[in-house]
Amino acid sequence: MHPIHSAVGPDWPCQVKSPGTHDWERTAARWLRDLLPARYAAYSPLTRHHLILARHARIQLEHEIRAVRVALQTCRAELPPLGVAEAVIENTIRMYAAELEQLGRLARSVRLVTEALLAEAGPSVPRRRAPAQRAS
């Protein structure tokens, strides 16, 4: 194993050991699993393959970010007809804004952990190629 010091930074999750240190991949997998709904713990592709787990965590966060954005954007239109008080709506908007910030940090952390897992896997893991451009 070779340490990857560039991956550790302000967005590196504190629950995950530094890449290249003893047992870091286990701590990464545990942290990634904690980002998913509990029911996913039973799926063997996610428990046995760290890169599949990281990919799913990224997709899960992308969808959560979209859901919170929709909830934030529709608060003022959809909550008053439900009888929700203006003060509660304002608190809800602040809550969604804070959650978007948190989800953004988590998404950056997942990206860093994924990059470290890919680097650890070495050249045997094919990298995604850019799509070929068509000639006009």
Rank of each mutant, 00 (worst) to 15 (best):
A98W: 03
R128T: 09
P10L: 12
M1G: 15
T114H: 00
W12Q: 04
S136R: 15
P37A: 02
D11H: 15
V70F: 04
R76N: 11
A7P: 01
D23Q: 07
A97W: 00
A54N: 06
S18N: 12
S124R: 13
T21H: 10
R105F: 02
R39I: 03
A116F: 06
A98Q: 07
M95T: 13
R108Q: 15
S18P: 09
A41H: 07
H5P: 04
R66V: 01
A132C: 05
L82E: 11
G9M: 00
S136C: 06
Q133F: 09
A121Y: 10
E25Q: 15
C14Q: 13
P19Y: 04
R129N: 04
T21N: 07
P81N: 07
R129C: 07
R94C: 10
P126Y: 06
A107M: 12
R55K: 08
A119H: 05
P126W: 01
L106C: 06
H63V: 02
R39S: 08
G122I: 01
R108C: 15
Q60F: 10
R127A: 13
Q102W: 02
S124P: 07
R26V: 00
R55G: 11
T92N: 07
A71S: 15
A116R: 05
T74S: 15
D11T: 12
K17Q: 12
R105A: 14
E25F: 00
S136I: 10
E62D: 11
D34T: 00
T92W: 08
Q60L: 09
G122L: 01
T47F: 00
R30I: 06
V8H: 04
C14F: 03
S44P: 04
V68L: 05
E90T: 08
S124M: 01
A107Y: 03
P10D: 11
V70I: 15
V88E: 15
T114P: 00
A71Q: 13
L72T: 04
E25S: 11
E101M: 07
